[in-house]
């Protein structure tokens, strides 16, 4: 992708797609759709999308074509991706809903096809306005018991960094 500094925002259709799952998006596309925030350069989402920065174009293009995301000219955080915590992935804009979406994306990336119960737990906590850190810890315990102990620890460590930053 030529312009990794481009800024994109989720459209209303994109927000609906997160819940509806109407399109057959790849995991990388879905992760990108969840974390994209209309403020950060698109290249900074490469790690959470689970692809190399130069592949971001392939991930992004279907989202644009389906009208799930749209470019924003001169976003406020253009170029400000260096020095961010958590591997350069931009942190959500502070709202718990955005943090919950980022946690869901993290769970889907870490646990892949086995993320279902963890995602469900996180979404329930987000819907009820509960403590996200407690939900992440609880989800990690569930993952440690029923999915993978090492991945559960990785998830919790990254979730703590994401929430506390």
């Amino acid at each position: 992708m030529d312009d990794l500094q481009g800024v994109y925002a989720r459209t209303e259709a994109g927000a609906a797609e997160i819940k509806a799952r109407a399109f057959e998006l790849t995991r990388a596309q879905r992760n990108l759709l969840i974390v994209i925030d209309g403020k950060s350069a698109i290249g900074s989402f490469a790690k959470i999308a689970g692809c190399a920065p130069e592949q971001m174009g392939e991930v992004l293009l279907p989202l644009v074509e389906h009208g799930l995301v749209a470019p924003i000219a001169g976003g406020p955080n253009r170029g400000a991706v260096q020095g961010r915590p958590w591997g350069g992935v931009p942190l959500p804009a502070g709202s718990s809903a955005a943090q919950a979406q980022a946690l869901v994306a993290l769970a889907e990336r870490v646990f892949d096809k086995r993320a279902g119960p963890v995602v469900l737990k996180l979404e329930k906590a987000a819907d009820s306005g509960g403590d996200l850190l407690a939900a992440a810890e609880s989800a990690a315990k569930l993952a440690k018991l029923t999915i993978d102990e090492v991945k559960a620890q990785d998830f919790l460590a990254e979730a703590r960094r994401l929430i506390s930053a």
């Binding site: 086995r114 119960p117 993952a143 440690k144 018991l145 029923t146 999915i147 993978d148 102990e149 559960a152």
Partner: peptide, 9 residues
């Protein structure tokens, strides 16, 4: 199917 690994798995 619900217990793919971890301590219980």
């Amino acid at each position: 199917s619900q217990i793919s690994g971890g301590v219980v798995g």
